[in-house]
């Protein structure tokens, strides 16, 4: 945790989750960009958050979803 900015990680998570107001966002980014360590930490946090999107790579093709949907609909109707 950076000594000069103790709640950095908490604020960074709120920033990455889109929870900061425009003013808070401006202040946060202003501080984060000025400090090399904070910039690096923010990049790492963003990578971790974005890494979950890798699951989009495992999506099967449309044909598999079409068959599954048919089975679902025949089970409920």
């Amino acid at each position: 945790m950076p000594k000069a900015y103790p709640d950095f990680e908490e604020t960074a998570e709120r920033y990455l989750d889109g929870e900061l107001t425009p003013d808070e966002k401006k202040r946060f980014l202003g501080r984060a960009r000025k400090d090399e360590e904070l910039s690096r930490m923010l990049k790492e946090m963003k990578l971790a958050k974005d890494s979950m999107r890798i699951y989009e790579d495992v999506l099967p093709g449309a044909a598999k979803f079409n068959s599954a949907r048919k089975r679902i609909l025949s089970a409920v109707s």
Partner: peptide, 21 residues
Amino acid sequence: IKAFEQIVRILERRVYMTAYA
């Protein structure tokens, strides 16, 4: 049923990824 099918179409990929995780 048509409306339900549309719901499935909208959410099926997200549900798949959740399950796969």
